[in-house]
Simulated assay, not measured.
Amino acid sequence: MKIIVAIDSFKGCLSSAEANAAAQSGVLAACPDAEVVDIPVSDGGEGWLDAYRIAVGGEMVSVRVCDPLMRQTDCCYLRKDDLAVIETARAIGLTLLKAEERNPLTATSYGVGQLVADAIRRGCRRFVIGLGGSGTSDAGKGMLQALSDAFGREDLYCVSALKDLQFTLATDVTNPLCGPQGAAHVFGPQKGATPEMVVELDRRAAAFAEQSAKHCGHDCSLAAGAGAAGGLGYAFMQYLRAGCRSGIDLLLDAVGFDKQVEGANLVVTGEGRADGQTLMGKLPHGIMLRASRYHVPTLLIAGKVTDRQMLLDAGFAYVESINPPTLSLEEAMEKAVAAQNIRKLMERFFRLRS
């Protein structure tokens, strides 16, 4: 029996690698002879760098950069040959800010530009940028300013160091930069924006897009993904000619998922909460769609499950909650408890089918 384990992080609780390890332990407890293929995964946000390092190898490069409040912090990116892989959340993540510090009117993406500049100086020419979990909503102006500061020119189109670079954005966000479905309105509140701040952030983004369109001769503000990471996606598209791809598809290609899934009996994936939104481009859905190409069934596990029938109708073969219904949220969020519950569920699931 061959089992693929590729579970997303349970945010605030377990990393992808930790969730996978717990699931693998449960599978082997029930089926000691099973072949379990462990694939840490991420869709571009938390865990992106670690998942990509496991997939392709390379070296971690440490850099001193600015966090969203321009405080110095240690950060890193992955380098392999001329490829740099960047997880933007490591430099400008919402988790770097205390609740009372969250203010997207002042938070900046400057640190991401510092990571890109360092990688360029080290000879990197291809970039994979994981967009997700940012604490900023500055339309990428901070990132562009950092590049301008690094290379001494205000007009990035005239900087020779930025010519012939290839940027790929890993994101499953399809929102435009501005408007009711834009970065500020959809993602601003979770970053600490009040209704008044949302209006101001959207106004700033629209003004920047108008100015940039006149300067560059084209406008990427309506492109799918422009609103990712508080508009950072827009800045990469508009000024650095970046293209967007589904984060999970990028990673699955990097790990050779199509080859791994050949001959598998089951794929196990999961996330902290599974519901109808899982089907809106989230990681487990992408994994299930890829596995279904090879007619391999997918088990979806989660800390909390709603809309079970909708998930089953969409193609998941099994949908299971890891937690007993009487377990409190506080206890369920404890790392040791969550890992144990994943292990128990997997052992029970496979014993019933062995």
Rank of each mutant, 00 (worst) to 15 (best):
G130Y: 08
C76D: 09
G93Y: 05
I39Q: 05
T95P: 01
R153K: 15
S15Q: 02
D149E: 15
R71E: 06
S62R: 15
C158I: 00
S354G: 15
D81N: 14
G111P: 05
E330F: 06
G113C: 13
Q340D: 12
C158T: 15
T269R: 02
Y52G: 00
I4G: 01
A34E: 09
V63R: 15
G132M: 12
I301A: 02
V296I: 14
K98W: 00
F127N: 05
A339P: 02
F236P: 09
Q114C: 09
T194P: 09
Q114N: 06
V128A: 10
H218F: 15
P297Q: 13
L232D: 11
A161S: 09
C124Q: 06
E154F: 08
C31Y: 02
Q260M: 08
P180D: 05
L312T: 08
R348F: 08
A223D: 12
L251Q: 01
M288V: 03
G281T: 11
T73I: 15
A184S: 15
D67K: 04
V63S: 08
A206E: 10
C244N: 13
G142C: 11
R204E: 11
G303Q: 03
A205V: 08
T88H: 08
A223K: 14
L201Q: 11
T136K: 06
I322F: 00
P104T: 05
E196Q: 15
V85G: 01
S148F: 07
V173Y: 14
Q181A: 07
D253S: 07
M70K: 08
E35P: 03
F151W: 12
K191S: 03
V116K: 09
T269D: 04
S16G: 05
E35Y: 05
D82C: 07
K282S: 10
G133L: 13
D118P: 02
A235N: 13
G247R: 10
D253Q: 13
G45F: 08
K80M: 02
V112P: 08
L240Y: 12
V296A: 05
K80I: 03
N175M: 04
W48G: 11
A170R: 09
E330K: 13
G272T: 00
T168M: 14
G286W: 07
L329I: 05
